[in-house]
Amino acid sequence: DESNKPILLPNESQSFERSVQLLDQIPSYDTHKIAVLYVGEGQSNSELAILSNEHGSYRYTEFLTGLGRLIELKDCQPDKVYLGGLDVCGEDGQFTYCWHDDIMQAVFHIATLMPTKDVDKHRCDKKRHLGNDFVSIVYNDSGEDFKLGTIKGQFNFVHVIVTPLDYECNLVSLQCRKDMEGLVDTSVAKIVSDRNLPFVARQMALHANMASQVHHSRSNPTDIYPSKWIARLRHIKRLRQRICEEAAYSNPSLPLVHPPSHSKAPAQTPAEPTPGYEVGQRKRLISSVEDFTE
């Protein structure tokens, strides 16, 4: 099969070098950035008060330690540790928490760990991170309901609301924008112990962030949302095809390698009803078989 044979790379090609550099910018793992907010007593309706908090309760602090690993920003190499735009020179604080497994990295933009500057009256330095995160974990210690939209931002799609209760338990629920209701189930609340709260809140936030990324990708319907490693695979396959075309153009005697095509017509299947918005969006999480067989 010609399409699977190794090909020689061009010795000097600026377009090839640019493509390789672009490939280096696509990590081999999925990345997520999640905002974390603490809401104190009497702050449920005040964005400024929430963003001005420099610490929270003892249970909130224990919750943070379970979310991930504490890292010092100045020691991080952005090409190895995903920071979601946090500055490593102290502009966004000294520490944050991050978490990773074999296929993804997540960083938490924690408002109480970011510096509260006197010259920044409206807390814009914090909002440029927190307001651009799709998902926020809100530790609501106010005793009042927290409403979506209290923290203004164009991309605040989903809130994971943590409400501490007695007996070391917590109520965990989801809020989302109306255009996200087909992807996020907000109907079920959970009672979770303090011990298990970081794991549950983190998983709910990661799932909500993946759904938000799919939702946000609708602005470019021709580019369905893939995982990062599938995006790398697609980029490599496009690069291979372009090299083959350039080689055939410079030397017409060489065969032009095309991806294999299936001449056999697909079997006719009964027509199915058109899937609704929710089903269609969830299918976009699934990769096409052509990603692996071309």
Rank of each mutant, 00 (worst) to 15 (best):
E2Q: 07
N4C: 15
N4D: 14
K5S: 15
K5P: 15
L9G: 08
N11Y: 09
E12Q: 09
S13C: 09
S13K: 06
S13G: 10
Q14D: 11
F16D: 08
R18S: 13
S19T: 13
S19A: 15
V20G: 06
L22D: 15
D24P: 04
P27C: 06
S28H: 10
Y29G: 04
T31V: 07
L48D: 13
L51S: 03
L51C: 02
N53E: 02
N53V: 01
E54P: 03
H55E: 09
R59Q: 00
F63L: 02
L64I: 10
L64N: 00
T65Q: 14
G66L: 01
L67V: 01
R69W: 06
R69I: 06
L70Q: 09
K80S: 07
L83E: 14
G84R: 12
G84K: 12
L86R: 15
V88N: 11
G90E: 12
G93W: 07
Q94A: 09
T96C: 11
Y97I: 15
W99A: 04
H100C: 13
D102L: 04
M104S: 13
A106E: 04
A106S: 04
A111P: 05
T112G: 02
L113M: 06
P115Q: 05
P115R: 06
K117C: 12
D120C: 09
K121V: 14
R123I: 11
K126I: 04
K126T: 04
K127W: 09
F134S: 02
F134G: 01
D145W: 02
D145I: 05
F146V: 05
L148S: 15
I151L: 11
V158C: 09
V158G: 02
V158F: 10
I161G: 01
V162R: 01
L165Y: 04
Y167S: 04
E168V: 01
N170G: 04
Q175C: 06
Q175H: 06
C176A: 14
D179I: 04
E181I: 06
L183R: 02
V184E: 03
T186V: 09
V188N: 09
K190H: 06
V192P: 00
D194A: 00
L197Y: 00
P198H: 01
F199A: 02
A205C: 01
A208V: 03
A208K: 01
A208W: 02
M210C: 02
A211I: 06
Q213R: 09
V214I: 13
S219M: 10
T222P: 06
D223H: 06
I224G: 05
S227Y: 06
W229V: 05
L233Q: 13
R234Q: 06
R238I: 06
L239P: 06
L239A: 08
C244K: 05
A247V: 10
S250R: 06
N251A: 12
N251C: 13
P252Q: 10
L254V: 13
L256Y: 13
V257P: 12
H258N: 12
P259C: 15
T269M: 10
T269N: 12
P270E: 08
P270L: 10
A271Y: 08
A271P: 10
A271H: 11
E272P: 09
P273D: 13
P273T: 11
G276D: 11
G276E: 09
G276M: 11
Y277F: 12
Y277N: 14
Y277I: 11
Y277S: 14
E278Q: 11
V279G: 15
G280A: 09
G280C: 13
K283M: 11
I286V: 10
I286L: 09
T293G: 13
